[in-house]
């Protein structure tokens, strides 16, 4: 039965998550003069040299690639803040620090295209890697608590973390739900006069009359 389900069916791909993260806004300092942009996703600008403005990340990266702006990394992406976060993550065995929903994707995007705008980029990068590792370790430990009593599981995690554990969590909860649900089991055991068989393919028995 488990072989039939499609565990990847509803998952987002990494590229799709990055796409979503690109809509988050970020501050840039343009070095060009450009009129206001009235885009489908909102109005941005006008752009004046040295005057900071908020734009979606995809727009920031597009300008950055052409050398038309510098990107101001978000507050949480400083060595100081990240060190605090990492310490707090290590101190607590079960709770997670508040980070932006798309922190993994945003930091990836900025590391790829705006390295020179991030102070202490190597340090920042390794701190984010460490935070990711610590969190994943905790997530793994947390998943051991999953049981047949679990009807709701709190996952206040980031988009990428949620996406990575999705197949396992939803699959596991589903299996527990099925096992813990009397009606679903009764249904496959109802025909008592038949010899016990692998109980997973109820309807197929009809063929064997």
């Amino acid at each position: 039965m488990s072989g039939q389900s499609d565990p990847r069916g509803s998952t987002f791909s990494a590229a799709e998550l990055e796409f979503l993260a690109e809509d988050e806004t970020i501050e840039i300092v343009p070095n060009l003069r450009m009129e206001r942009l009235s885009l489908i996703c909102g109005d941005f600008g006008p752009f004046r040299p040295q005057i900071a403005t908020q734009v979606p990340i995809w727009l920031a990266v597009a300008l950055k690639k052409r050398g038309k702006c510098t990107i101001r990394p978000p507050d949480w992406m400083s060595v100081e803040k990240l060190t605090q976060v990492l310490e707090a993550e290590r101190d607590s065995a079960s709770s997670f620090e508040a980070l932006p929903f798309h922190y993994v994707e945003i930091s990836r995007l900025l590391f790829d295209d705006a390295r020179d705008d991030i102070p202490d980029v190597y340090m920042v990068r390794s701190l984010i890697e460490d935070i990711k590792d610590v969190r994943f370790h905790k997530i793994g430990t947390g998943l051991e608590k999953l049981s047949s009593r679990t009807y709701a599981m709190k996952l206040n995690l980031s988009a990428m973390e949620v996406n990575v554990i999705r197949p396992f969590v939803t699959g596991g909860l589903e299996t527990f739900y099925k096992l813990g649900n009397p009606e679903l089991i009764q249904e496959s055991e109802r025909p008592e006069h038949r010899r016990p068989q692998p109980a997973d393919r109820g309807p197929r028995r009809e063929l064997r009359r």
Binding site: E22, M34, I40, C41, W58, L59, A62
Partner: peptide, 17 residues
């Protein structure tokens, strides 16, 4: 300005996607 045009085009592409 080609830059402006390309930014508008990117925005359209995202919505179309």
């Amino acid at each position: 300005d080609p830059l402006t045009v390309s930014l508008y085009q990117m925005d359209i592409d995202r919505t179309v996607f």
